[in-house]
Write a protein that binds this DNA or RNA. Sequence first.
DNA 1: GCACAATACGTGTATATACTCTTAGTTATA
DNA 2: TATAACTAAGAGTATATACACGTATTGTGC
Lengths: 157, 157
Amino acid sequence: MKIMREQNSNADFSRTTDYAAECACLNIRKASRFITSLYDEYLRPVGLRATQLSLLIALEQGGSVTITSLSKFFQMDRTTLSRDLKPLERQGWVLITEGEDRRKRFITLTPDGQDLLKRALPLWEQAQIRIRDYMGEDRYKGLLGQLSDILKLNRRD
Amino acid sequence: MKIMREQNSNADFSRTTDYAAECACLNIRKASRFITSLYDEYLRPVGLRATQLSLLIALEQGGSVTITSLSKFFQMDRTTLSRDLKPLERQGWVLITEGEDRRKRFITLTPDGQDLLKRALPLWEQAQIRIRDYMGEDRYKGLLGQLSDILKLNRRD
DNA sequence: GCACAATACGTGTATATACTCTTAGTTATA
DNA sequence: TATAACTAAGAGTATATACACGTATTGTGC
């Protein structure tokens, strides 16, 4: 009986095309999942995730910063960043201390965190090269440009 | 004392530029966060998140499908999809039933789910228009093309 | 028909994400 | 100076994400 048209794994998503091909959100989330898993894979030997590496790098180069300022840099909710820091603190890679203004908390990279970062950066470069070589220099730069364009829509400063 | 160079909120991330400007993962995650929050904002009146809307649409147009086949369509881990469905099931928007092959579970959109979808789609269109108008038709299409290029790197079929 | 491989799925665990509400501390103002 | 407004952060809750491991079911080769 042809009624049970989809009672198998070869589902027909063809009519989904409009949405699937046009939705910026769906497509950027798909790409984000994939890219993240690729970077995570490269970073696995040192036990870091992509997001965590980005935090360590920002801390190494930004010095001692507050949670709110770091969250602005990453254009990320403050409470998200706060929770992202927890595993890093537990592992002893970052240190969170009180400021003179006792509302503020300052985050600092520890020596252990710096060591880890030294080991992680070459792995990051490999992932970087993988994507760049695959896409080609021009398309890669184009992508980065467009991603940065999108974020400009968010500027409230 | 100039030692306390960063003991304030105006942290200097300038030297982070190399990484921040070049890392595909960081930039796509930032853009993904922003785009997602934008779509979520438009969808809030109907109590749907962007990811959830994408699931409902796929189900409406794909019919009754298994978890694994749906996860492949979204290029998403099977267990992630499984958990994404939980809130939708709890709200009565999708129904999960056993197949003849008792390993399989078939997911179907309920009438309530269809109603919700009808109310949600116009909101999705508004978000869609927002981004498209901002970027311009050409850049928008370019972005979608590049996101889809990235995913081709993942093809193992 | 049975042993083994392959398939489909769930659970446990951990990170990533953001909204709402609350608390504590600081600054501005009447 | 007392109070209101503002700023910085935490906690509660809920969704999104994926890996490792385990279990049940089905298919296959002999």
